Simulated assay, not measured.
Amino acid sequence: MEYAKLGHSELQVSRVCLGSMTWGVQNNQHDADEQINHALAQGVNFIDTAEMYAIPPTPDTYGKTEAIIGDWIARNQAKRQETIIATKIAGPGMHWVRDGGPITGEAVIQSVENSLKRLQTDYIDLYQLHWPNRTSPHFGKQWPNTFSFADVDVNSQRSQMLEILQALNECITAGKIRHCGLSDETTWGISTYLELAEKHSLPKMVSIQNEFSLLCQKDWPYLIEHCHHADVAYLPWSPLASGLLTGKYANGARPAGSRWSLMNSNNIYRSTELAHSAVAQYADIAKDIGITPAQLALAWCNSVQGVTSSIIGATSMAQLKEDLAAFELTLDNETQKRIANVIKQIPAPY
């Protein structure tokens, strides 16, 4: 296993981060225990979760994943210090989480306490803002004129960001979190948080996790370049495009128990004709070099300059082993060229 520095922090994280959003719906405690123990045995030391998990998010599944991880931590105290636990506070929009309200300083302090209880730990290594209070170009909103920049009150946003940083600083001072980071943010968001931290002597964000895969490269190169020069770790989530890049959803398939089988088809914005066409071409490349489509996608993501650690998720041990093996692969120049040709043909399939 290879490791990389988590931004400007002192933490060395594995190039693979074990995602956990399926734990509590598609996976139970036993499954999670197996996945964690196997991943740690392979050198993975980084686990990512969130207060809103499991997925799909509902009032009934809220907090379940953190509780499952907490159960494992309670039975494996000796491994806690070796394991970097990252979790996230949900942004606005879900009525069962703080009445759908925005992230505030008060919300940060209370949510940290709640996550600590569910995780059964004294500290959180990386505490992240799951998405910003303002509308941002994520979750299918990256297209021009999808929303209006003019609707954002910049002064209000900066004031909220400062309040959030002050609350994060309070939690760090109290030893409840070690570092803070972002998720589903933009270059403006990152730079504003860094500017406010510098101006007010508050904690600097050490990382950002955004969607990034063979089907979604909207952050390359501009946001990722900013991360590199600002010493902010870049953590791709959904490097398999919600399982689409495995090929299991080809020709309209919805395998029983898969994430897409649990979702409203109207909400599956990744399922486009262009996306399926690209996936078929990537599957042909993988077949030609003797690896699986999932391994091709993960090995490519791991090869991208600026990527610190890719967040993977699996619902079975077979999937987990397949995914982990991808990080031992190096794609040759010819394969990279073939991949680049597909990207050029279909640069933004959803």
Rank of each mutant, 00 (worst) to 15 (best):
G247A: 05
L215N: 13
Q345V: 13
N155K: 14
S207F: 15
I346V: 10
K88R: 04
L274F: 05
F149G: 15
A250Q: 10
L119R: 00
T315A: 11
R80T: 02
R338W: 11
A250C: 03
T65H: 08
R118W: 11
A4F: 08
A348F: 11
T61Q: 09
S213Y: 02
T61Y: 08
E195Q: 15
R98A: 08
G70L: 14
I177V: 15
H229W: 07
R15C: 08
I339Y: 07
A256L: 11
R270D: 06
Y123I: 10
H179L: 09
M205Y: 13
L126T: 01
G93T: 07
K344G: 07
A253H: 00
W188T: 10
E163S: 09
A340P: 05
D31N: 13
V232Y: 03
T121L: 00
K287Q: 13
Q305T: 15
I69V: 12
P59K: 07
E51T: 04
D288V: 01
Y234D: 14
L320M: 09
L129H: 12
E66G: 00
P221L: 10
T104L: 06
S277D: 04
E334V: 06
F147L: 06
A250P: 02
E322H: 06
I311M: 14
I69S: 01
D99W: 15
L320Y: 00
Q12V: 07
S148C: 12
N28H: 12
D153Q: 04
N210V: 01
P56E: 02
A241F: 00
E113R: 11
W260T: 01
Q142L: 09
Y282N: 13
Q35V: 08
V108M: 13
L298G: 00
A41D: 09
Y222N: 12
K117I: 13
S213H: 05
A348Y: 14
I343W: 12
A241L: 02
S20L: 02
A280D: 06
D284M: 09
N133I: 10
A78T: 08
Y62Q: 03
